[in-house]
Amino acid sequence: MILNVSNLYKTYTRRGEEFNAVDNVEFFAWSGDFSVIYGESGSGKSTLLSLLSGINRPSQGSIIFNGIDFANLTDAELSAIRNDKIGYIPQDAVFLPQFTVLENIFLPRAIRNGKKIEVRDISELTDIDILSKLETLGIAHLANEMPAELSGGELKRASIVRAMVNKPDIVIADEPTSNLDEVNGKKVFDLLAELVHSGTSVIVATHDTRGFKYGDRIYTMLKGKLLPSGESDYGGL
């Protein structure tokens, strides 16, 4: 088991009143496992993913990643895991505007290795795996552009490749197909499925019902609670 989550809470205060954005969540994932979390906006999907990816700390509960409890890790240890073992794809793609798309993609590797960004131009790219992913998602020809030159959908696809650059054990994607048309949305799910076949665990939060056919396990998020498929008001989706 790569991820084991139990009794997980994230509590926020809104207008003086506390509420649980994540409410007593139990969750687990194995290597080579595709989990799809479905839910409406505000249901707590993104908050849950932020906790699972280690960029947010839970109010209560435990997240055990590869046998390590996040709660016992220092900021440096958790940051190293985020860099190397977890590929997080945020809902809105964020890029450093002073670097090209390709440089942005290789940024996590540069940070891990403590070296300058190794590839400046797509013609110098020797990492066949990354090149193939860029081609699969149809953005190889945009790799040398600055982020400001790309559309939201193109950036989204580039951020998916970036999440995979360090070959993480788990990829956590928050609405990876938002901003994408049907063809590109399918390409993204196909790519994630490919990762699963190679042994990576994938967790996707989505509105997109197309993702259901890829999922080994489907969950529904409702008011902070994570329900296995068939137990929610959306049962049978």
Partner: peptide, 16 residues
Amino acid sequence: RREYALLRIIGFTRKR
């Protein structure tokens, strides 16, 4: 802020 958030996501520590 979003850029700093990105750096945190991809492995920057608070100290760094």
